[in-house]
Design a protein around this nucleic acid. Structure first.
Lengths: 149, 149
DNA sequence: AAGTTTGGACAACTTGGTTGACTACTTTGG
DNA sequence: CCAAAGTAGTCAACCAAGTTGTCCAAACTT
């Protein structure tokens, strides 16, 4: 049996490839994973560029670049921070929310297929196991999302 | 619960970060994941640059660069292919095998800690679940190891 | 009020890949 | 058996997506 990180990397890649393919089939410009993760992040909480960088596990400059792209493409907009004149909140536009919704559906499909392939109970155990490990090793603050290569 | 790919990415990152830290504690120059994956690959089978590229999920040029680095640092050497005069086999040197052994021990430690954290049975299910999914989705030919970001 | 920290932007650079072109050798099929 | 097509490897140009370093203005700290 392959070691755990190899399994993780391969599965991540396999899922990502499929997601990417289907997105293209629909005819939607496939953003990079980072963009999707930002959407998902912004859905939950208001965030500044710095917050985003921390969440992704990259520098604020890198995060700013991503945020600017998303802004340019109309998925997010920046609004002034209510109390801090330096900062800006990055928030999802309707277009951004729509994209996220569609992507979520796609992910649901993929996860459903995964459940069918390996058994819903097994998948549930996998998810809970990974989540438990993350809590154990990192407590509340999650590791960056960016896989180190 | 976070979606599967997020869990995969975070866990991969968390494991990788720990591995990296410990390798540095020992005082060993931490190669990149790609190098480790190549070691593991070469341990099993003789491989050419092209094979390596395919295994990692990158172009042969990128694979060649990695192989050359490993060669330069003394972890692998290239020997002529017995029948194909164009090709070269890349094989592990003793130094390479030693490094792999040490890395394997480290990974065992990490995996043992993971087992302790989430339960050995759960970990076993996780591994089997991921492996089963990979077989299902890809059959025999594995997806590239490189996580797409 | 002075000193330190922080959000954000700009610029230069690095890394690690890509595509494209070319050579030498190998395989295939008429 | 030879011509065409395919493949291993290298070189070079390019590109994407990060990094570090520097700076400003606003915000905290004391």
């Amino acid at each position: 049996m392959e070691p755990v990180p190899v399994l993780l990397a391969m599965t991540y890649r396999a899922l990502g490839d499929q997601f990417h393919d289907r997105l293209r089939q629909i005819g939607l410009e496939p953003l990079r994973p980072a963009h999707g993760y930002v959407f998902r992040f912004l859905e939950e909480k208001r965030a500044t560029t710095v917050d985003i960088g921390q969440h992704l596990g990259v520098t604020k400059q890198a995060a700013a670049k991503i945020a600017n792209e998303l802004d340019e493409w109309g998925y997010v907009l920046k609004e002034p921070h209510p109390t801090d004149k330096r900062a800006q909140y990055v928030t999802l536009t309707t277009k951004g929310r729509d994209y996220l919704k569609l992507a979520d559906n796609l992910w649901s499909d993929l996860e459903a297929e995964m459940a069918e392939a390996i058994g819903a109970d097994t998948l549930a155990t996998v998810k809970q196991g990974l989540a438990a490990y993350l809590r154990h090793v990192r407590g509340e603050d999650r590791p960056g999302l960016r896989p180190i290569w």
